[in-house]
Computed example of a mutant assay.
Amino acid sequence: MRRDHKKLVFAIALASFITKVQSFEDLFTHGVITVKVGAGTYSLLVDTGSSNTWMGAGEPYQPGPNSQDTGETVYVSYGDASFSGEEFTDDVTLDSLTIQGQSIGVAISSTGMRGLDGVLGLGPSGLTQGTTSGGGEIPTVIDNLFSQGTIAAHLISIAGKQISYGKTDASTFVGAITYGPITGTSPANTFWGIDGSFTYGPSGTSILATTAGIIDHSSTRTLLASDAYSTFLKLTGATTDQKTSFAVLDSCDKLESISFDFGGAIFQIPVEKYRWPADQNTVIGGDVDKCYLAVGDLGTKSGHGLDFILGYNTLKHFTVILDTGNSRVGIAKGNASLL
């Protein structure tokens, strides 16, 4: 959930760990992970677009025996959601993986969370800078899993319906992993930022030339800079539905694939992977017989340093490696059996 960017906040349920892998149920929107913090258990939004971990939006925080109030306040704004409260440290357990003394936010007030207890922040730690009254940078849960020796590598891998901590699971993808460095373009480089381009159809008509964007599993849709989104609408024949804000057509029959070029590799996004699932039309307030597309308008023109967001409805079809240790992102074609 990128700070200061509006997006839908929905939830999907995550279930049990297998060693250092956690599986989850796909409800076409976001991931929600069950996390034990102190003496309580919370349902937190899995968010690769922000980095603070916090709870208290729903279930109140129950401090554990090792809980400590740091005396600092904390505030994070996500555009259409926010929270403010106090910073504590406490033990955080991701099923079998325990982090000692993790900084957490405990909400006194929050908006826009729609039944969630809070957020599990999996973005780079730099995004925490300035979120507490002390102003410093806060190590994330992944930072601390690595620094405390709980995981062997400073990375996570998100694939289909599971998250792997500290490793890449070869069973989750087919073919090779393509890696690219974190983009040098600001402000995308403060997130899981990458450089890439989008084309449409077998003719390779450009939608968006090579530019910087980010990975964000809490964004339901893939979002394009406004000028690129206008091009996408013209190429597909879609219009923006005022009721749902989604791109919409009467039928998906004439649509063609989108191609995403990253690190010199071309990743195909077939129609069935970027259309909104028809049986979920009513979830967004849409008509049952329309074709909605999970590609939206970022709200700013290209050239501002963050021109696209690869969102959950696209990313779930790929294995994505967020590698802090090597300052890079990896993408591979997902194993269809995990979807």
Rank of each mutant, 00 (worst) to 15 (best):
G64E: 06
E25A: 07
K316D: 03
S147N: 12
V74T: 15
L145F: 14
R328E: 04
G112T: 08
G213S: 08
P277H: 10
L223F: 05
F262P: 08
L97A: 07
S125H: 12
L235N: 03
L293W: 00
G126Y: 00
K20D: 14
E72F: 13
G135D: 03
V141F: 11
I158D: 06
G136H: 13
A81W: 11
L224N: 02
T240R: 11
D250R: 12
I156W: 00
I163L: 13
Q162K: 15
T34V: 05
T19E: 14
A225G: 06
D169V: 02
A225R: 03
Q102H: 14
S109Y: 09
G296D: 12
S109C: 05
F146Y: 15
Y61R: 03
K301A: 14
T314W: 10
E137Q: 12
G115T: 13
T231I: 07
L233D: 03
I151S: 00
Q62H: 13
S157Q: 08
T29Y: 02
I182M: 06
Q242G: 13
P139T: 09
S109P: 05
G196P: 06
S77V: 01
F10A: 11
G334I: 12
I182D: 00
Y274D: 04
F260N: 07
K316H: 14
G101M: 07
C252W: 01
G112A: 09
G311F: 10
I284Y: 03
T244W: 01
L97G: 09
Q68T: 14
L235V: 04
I194W: 07
I309W: 09
P277V: 09
